[in-house]
Amino acid sequence: MKVTLKIWRQPDAASKGAMHTYEVDDVSPDMSFLEMLDVLNERLNAQGEEPIAFDSDCREGICGMCGLMINGQAHGPEVTTTCQLHMRSFKDGDEITIEPWRADAFPVVKDLCVDRGAFDRIIQSGGYISVNTGAAPDAHAVPVPKDKADRAFDAATCISCGACVAACPNGSASLFVGAKVTHLGELPQGQAERDRRVVSMIGQHDHEGFGGCTNIGECTAACPKEIPLDVISRLNWDLHAALRHGK
């Protein structure tokens, strides 16, 4: 099949970018979306045009490195990561618009690559349980009820891809922050730092320049790991609790 691609190209963070149009004609429906871009890049290279930069690493939907805005949807039309999207989700003759995540907290590095360092800094601000190596009690010392463990797990499946931010009309990272706060806040091990964690993570989130959440719900629909909106409710609940406790 044949597709027409409109792709954002931007040489580096400082330059202005623009959309460019490319045609790819020998697309097989079994190709992944990124393999289709690989094919285009091979061709550009042969023609002496610099290949399009885009991020990916594991290509199996778990590392969170990939992420493109495809036809206006984060990770494209399926609920999965960009690397797990396949060309059979498109039709012959389709025109596909490809852009990087747009958020000022995720500056474009080049073409379709963005810098998601803000997420690491949010984790640094409190997304952990403080325990030094070797200081841990036996793993069975504290039982964790299965439902709590499962809930913590559901939230912990976040892969830090940033699709929630990309999809949110407010450019908010509340789903990401909520997922971490819920993961650690559900577990008995995470209680001691619960108040402090939520306050400083939200503080860092705002400081990074992400927008505020107005509960629109695009984030959860774009999330390849289907993190539910519960985690934002949970984030708010924990924040109010922390403020009540005077944190």
Binding site: A105, P169, N170
Partner: peptide
């Protein structure tokens, strides 16, 4: 007003194409 301003600053470069899939018209 604060939320509006933050949202405007959070994404100064707009998408060429953006689709909303899950949100209600009311919310937007």
């Amino acid at each position: 007003a604060v939320l509006w301003r933050r949202a405007a600053k959070a994404r100064t470069t707009k998408y060429v194409m953006k689709r909303n899939v899950a949100s209600t018209l009311s919310s937007r």
